[in-house]
Structures are given as structure tokens and as C-alpha cells.
């Protein structure tokens, strides 16, 4: 789902240093934050928000859970949010054990909930709302418009938006899918969402080496009417090394740059050599 200004957001781990900083930025931006969770501070108030012991206490009163929760507590928090009826759980933490991630994803599926991440920088709908750790409030980077942006990396996603904004092309939304190898919403699934979204007229994909997310997205892009353009990071990275993200590794010939570029280009998706080429490619794509 694409985040809307009307979505009510519950922040798990709201009282921590980062939870406090980003939640107050979200409130300033106009996000509909309805409460926070911290079992040790239940009953108090923080940033003017009520603090609860668990998401379950807010069942039916929120749509999106945003997790500022350390990696080893993420599984419990995510399942709590799914069982409390969250439609979307945004999981920022990196280094969550993979077995916990699989349990989180199975729990989400059983409850009809979607997870974004782990290891995502969050979601932004410029001019309306944001949830996560993206500089939505920086008007040089984000601007309301019609381009959907999907990125495995927060920093690269911000750079792509900066380039689009600089060329006068605003964004319908930014969807951070996350840099982990196993994630709740894949690049392909995010692309399908943008394809269905009426406010989105074109899509930019910021991929990386490792895995097969870009190849799978290319399969879907083949049948799309909306123009799609991509940049894939890691062309010059050595094989066999994890490039910062757990998911960014070329392993035994799998997950390499060339295969991704070939798959996207043969699906009619132009691939930029530099992030700065994205605006020109997206205006030219599909025409």
C-alpha cells in the first residue's frame, strides 16, 4: 500500500532517541501519528502522544505501525502490530536474525498484514505524510508529483529523489523496500502497487547487486503501460563481498549487475549509468 495522509500511524519504540527525533519530525510534517508503544512507559505521554504497553491496546485505532525497535525485539513487536490489525508494518531495524524475519513474515501473512523492510528507511508521500527515517521535510530532495520511487537503500533513494526534484519532477511516493536479503515487500510488489496507483504516472527503481529482485521486477514491468527507469548500484563492486547491506552480494555468479541490467533493458526499462541520468531517462522512457 502507498502511505496516505489519512493513515493513522502508531510508533513502536517512540520514546527512544531516534523514535523521538523522527516522530516529532513526522508530526511537524503532518503525519497522523495517533500513539506510541513502550511497555515500560505505558500510561505516560510522549510528544503529546499516549504511550501504550502494546499495539494490541490500540486494535482498530491505527492503520500503520512504525517500528523503532532493536533487532532482537523486532519479531515480537511486529507480530504484536500484525495481530492488532495493522495493515502495514514498517520495520526499520537492520540485523534482525533471518529466522525471526521468517516468523514475522509468516505472522503478517496469517493476519493479512503487509511488512515493509526489514532494513528500510521508510515511506514518504511528499506533501502529505511520511513514516521512517527519510528527510521528507527537505524540499530540495522531496516534492509532490507523479513519480513513484522504489529503493533498497535509503541514501540512494534520497539521491534519486534529489535528482528528480532538481529536474522539476515531483514524487507520488517513495517506497523503501529495504536492504536485507529477505523482505516483506519486494521491488516487484512495490512496482505492482505503483502501477495500480492513480497518482503515479511513472516509476523509478533504485536496485542493487545481490538477489533477483530486479529480474523479478523486470518481468512485471514488461507488461506495464507506465514508463519505468532504473539505476542499479554495485556495478564496480567485487564479487563475494557483502557491500554493507546483507542483501548486496554477488555470490557464485548469482545476483550480478549484468543479469539485472539485461533483464530490465529487455523488458523495456532503461538503466541509468549514473543516478543523475534518471530524470532524462524517465521522461524519455515509454515515449
Amino acid at each position: 500500500m502507498i502511505l496516505l495522509g489519512s493513515h493513522r500511524i502508531l510508533v513502536q519504540g517512540v520514546t527512544g532517541r531516534q523514535g523521538t527525533f523522527w516522530t516529532s519530525e513526522m508530526i511537524k510534517y503532518g503525519a497522523a501519528v495517533v500513539g506510541g508503544v513502550n511497555p515500560r512507559k505505558a500510561g505516560t505521554s510522549h510528544l503529546g502522544l499516549p504511550v501504550f504497553a502494546s499495539a494490541r491496546e490500540m486494535t482498530g485505532k491505527f492503520d500503520v505501525a512504525l517500528m523503532f525497535v532493536p533487532p532482537l525485539s523486532a519479531k515480537t513487536a511486529a507480530i504484536d502490530a500484525c495481530e492488532a490489525g495493522a495493515k502495514l508494518v514498517i520495520c526499520l531495524a537492520e540485523h534482525i536474525p533471518t529466522h525471526d524475519v521468517m516468523e514475522m513474515l509468516a505472522g503478517a501473512k496469517a493476519n493479512g498484514c503487509r511488512i515493509a523492510g526489514p532494513n528500510t528507511a521508510g515511506l514518504v508521500t511528499p506533501g502529505q505524510t511520511f513514516a521512517g527515517i527519510m528527510p521528507a521535510f527537505n524540499s530540495r530532495i522531496f516534492k509532490a508529483g507523479g513519480i513513484g520511487v522504489i529503493s533498497r537503500s535509503g541514501s540512494l533513494g534520497a539521491l534519486a529523489c534529489l535528482n528528480l526534484t532538481r529536474s522539476g519532477m515531483g514524487q507520488s511516493a517513495f517506497f523503501g523496500v529495504g536492504g536485507d536479503p529477505m523482505i516483506g515487500t519486494t521491488t516487484r510488489e512495490a512496482l505492482e502497487m505503483f502501477d495500480r496507483d492513480e497518482r503515479t504516472s511513472a516509476v523509478v527503481i533504485c536496485g542493487e547487486i545481490g538477489g533477483s529482485a530486479e529480474e523479478e521486477a523486470a518481468e512485471y514491468a514488461q507488461g506495464m503501460r507506465k514508463p519505468v527507469a532504473a539505476f542499479i548500484a554495485g556495478r564496480s563492486s567485487p564479487p563475494g563481498k557483502k557491500m554493507g547491506h546483507a542483501g548486496a552480494i554477488v555470490d557464485g555468479g548469482r545476483g550480478g549487475y549484468a543479469s539485472k541490467r539485461r533483464a530490465l533493458e529487455s523488458a523495456g526499462v532503461p538503466v541509468a549509468d549514473l543516478p543523475s541520468e534518471l530524470p532524462a531517462l524517465i521522461s524519455g522512457a515509454g515515449s
Binding site: S153, G154, S155, L156, G157, A158, H245
Partner: peptide, 8 residues
């Protein structure tokens, strides 16, 4: 900063 930006 960030894996994606560093690779890029």
C-alpha cells in the same frame, strides 16, 4: 553514507 549510495 549508506550501502546503496557508497556503491553508487
Amino acid at each position: 553514507n549508506g550501502a546503496g549510495l557508497t556503491m553508487a
